[in-house]
Structures are given as C-alpha cells and as structure tokens.
Design a protein around this nucleic acid. Structure first.
Lengths: 185, 185
DNA sequence: TCCTTCTATGCAACTCGTTGCATAGACAAG
DNA sequence: CTTGTCTATGCAACGAGTTGCATAGAAGGA
C-alpha cells in the first residue's frame, strides 16, 4: 500500500494532474515504483475524498482542462506517519530468474535471445539514468549547493545506476553460462 | 501470472506437497519470487483441475498425510510455451527508495535506523546465499561435473549474491548521505 | 474532411496477492 | 493433561493491480 505514499511524495516534489503523475511514473519515480494511470486516478480520487490532497481546476489553452492536485495537511501527516513506520525489506520478483531455472527443463540456448533483449533494455535504462544524473546533478547546469531534496533524489538515482550496472554484469554472466551449456551439447 | 510457472519449475526440480513448496518459497526459489501458502494452495488446485499436475496421496508416519504433486505433460507444455514467450523487463518496486525521497519533506535523520535495519537484513541474506553457494556449488561436497540444472541454479544464485552486494554498497551510500544531511542542520 | 496523435479522465470486470481465521494429526515439554 | 510447536490443508474477505474499453477537446497531416 505504498502507491499512495509514492504519489504524495511526487506531489510534494511538484503538484500536478493525474495525467502528469502518470507520466512521472513512466519516468523518474516510476523506476522505483511502477503504476498505471488507472491506479493513479483511483487513488487520487480516494485521497481527495479523504482530504489528503486538494484539487484545483486549471483551464488550459490548446489542450483540455486538468485538475491539479497538491498535498493538504492531512496528507502530509499521513506520509509522515508512514515514513516513521518500519517496512519489510522488499520481496523481489525476478521473472527472468524463474525462466533461467526453468530452462533446465527446456532448451537453454533458446533463452539467449530473451536474455540479450533484457540486456539491451537495461543498457538503455542505464544510459537514461546517466544522462539524467549528468543533467540534474553532475553537469554544468547542476546546482552548486544542492538542497536535501536534491541530495536524496541523487542518492536514489545512484541506486538505480548501481542496480543497472550490476544487472548488466550479471546478464553477461548468464549469457556466458548459456553459451557454455550450448557448447557442451 | 508467473507464480504458476515458478511452481512448475520447482516441482520439476523436485516433486512435493503444497506445504513443502511453501517452505521452498521461503528459501531458494522464493528469493526471486515470493509467495504465501495461500497462493500456492490455490494455484495447485487450479493446476490440478486443469490437468497440469498430478496429485498423489502420501501417507506419512509421525506427521499428517500429504498430497504430493508432480508435473504432468500439459503442465510441461504450458511451461515450455511460457519459456518461449518474451517477458517485459521487470518493473521494480523499491519502497525504501520512495521513503528516501519522502524524507526530504520530513526528518532525514529519522530514516537512519530504518536504513540500518535494512542493511542488516541484506547482510544476513548475503551470508545465507554465500553459505548456500559454498554448500551446493563451490565447497568440497559440490558436484565436480555439475549438470545444466545445477549450472543454471548457480548462475541465478550468483545474481542474488551480486544483488545483495550492490544493495549493501548502496545502503552505505545512503547512510553516508543521511549523515551528511544531518550534520548540515 | 477524415484520421491520427496527444492531452486528459474515467468505468467495469477481472485476476492477483494479502490477512485473518479454522481445522487437524503427531509429538514434546511442563 | 494441557499447552505449544510443527506439519499439513484450506476458506472467506478484502485490497492491490491489470486490461479493455469509452469519452472528449485540440492540433496537425493526408
């Protein structure tokens, strides 16, 4: 039940509409917590009913009107409560790992294309993260004295970068292993 | 919808009851795909109805009887179909990352205990993985000529080890960042 | 003019996953 | 002989997440 909290954090970083939030969840924050626009709209409605967030109708030119949400005091309090609650170290769900173990009962070499496709996807994501880091934190346009929010966003991004680098190295290990098993047949 | 496939893989590696599967999901395979006994029993029942797996009543001494499941031909075919389908590179859900970004709107230093608790949990898990690797793959009792299944289990375990090492290093980075922000106040 | 794309919001139906509870046999400790 | 623990299976209710579909304004291109 952390999606509502992820939305609160995103709205505190910058107020926005459901549509804008959905796009943020396709980008930055969504790299650490995925969500579809359906989930987002539903939870926004619930949080508005509960008084956690305020809605403001915004008329726009050259595009449809939108409802811009911002966090109200009760929402901030709810987020604060959640931040002080302990959470369980996450339980991973790594579908590809299941496939790799399953390949023992099928053709291991047939997995190669799939693994290489994943490798490319992770290489793209790493490049994307590194470009974002350059743009926001380490490049010439980056703030000289970053505030706490920027420091924390940066350390989360460094986590994403470390994750992608580790994953790339592991996928190379997987590919080498599959090749080895293919050569043995 | 990969839990059924994870169960099929586990049953191919070794037939067992729902209870035994639940314990495996607390150990080895569950490190890459978590599941409770409720989910497992429900899916076992469905797969039995669909003819994917066969059930066999096993009378036991000094404990209750159990139903031992093994994979039938249609289940194997279903697994094979799934193995040949492409899957999306997984969408991560990293609750702690959401909390870290949220800490910018609360007290960053208050997160230290939580992050250190996670660090300990990951250190324990790494130690557990390394012990398992020693026992099954690199120690004196390990097979000299591992078969394909063992090679694939090992490469998945190496992924788990790499993940935990990366996570530990990142959590140290997070802890250092939180300390730095605390010192600045 | 029609078609597509982008912005923007939402309903309905379904499956997946979690939590709490219930039952029951066998055994060991107090 | 009651209590607790481990093995073993399951129901019911709920909440989370996915998929398909629908609507609608505005812009741009064929």
């Amino acid at each position: 039940m952390a999606l509502e909290h992820a939305i609160l954090v995103s709205l505190l970083e910058k107020p926005g509409s459901g549509y804008e939030l959905a796009r943020r969840f396709d980008r930055s924050i969504g790299y650490f917590w995925a969500a579809t626009h359906q989930q987002i709209y539903r939870i926004l409605k619930r949080m508005e009913n509960d008084g956690w967030i305020d809605a403001r109708e915004v008329a726009q030119q050259s595009r449809p009107d939108k409802k811009e949400y911002s966090v109200a005091a009760p929402g901030r309090a709810a987020l604060s409560r959640w931040l002080h609650e302990p959470i369980e170290p996450e339980s991973v769900r790594h579908e590809l790992a299941v496939k790799i173990r399953g390949a023992a009962f099928d053709d291991p070499a047939a997995l190669l294309d799939e693994v290489e496709r994943h490798r490319r996807a992770h290489a793209d994501r790493l490049a994307h993260y590194l470009a974002g880091e350059q743009r926001d934190f380490t490049g010439p346009d980056a703030p000289e004295r970053p505030d706490a929010g920027q420091e924390l966003q940066h350390v989360v991004l460094r986590g994403g970068i470390a994750y992608e680098r580790m994953t790339l190295a592991w996928l190379d290990d997987v590919i080498a292993t599959l090749h080895r098993l293919g050569a043995q047949r």
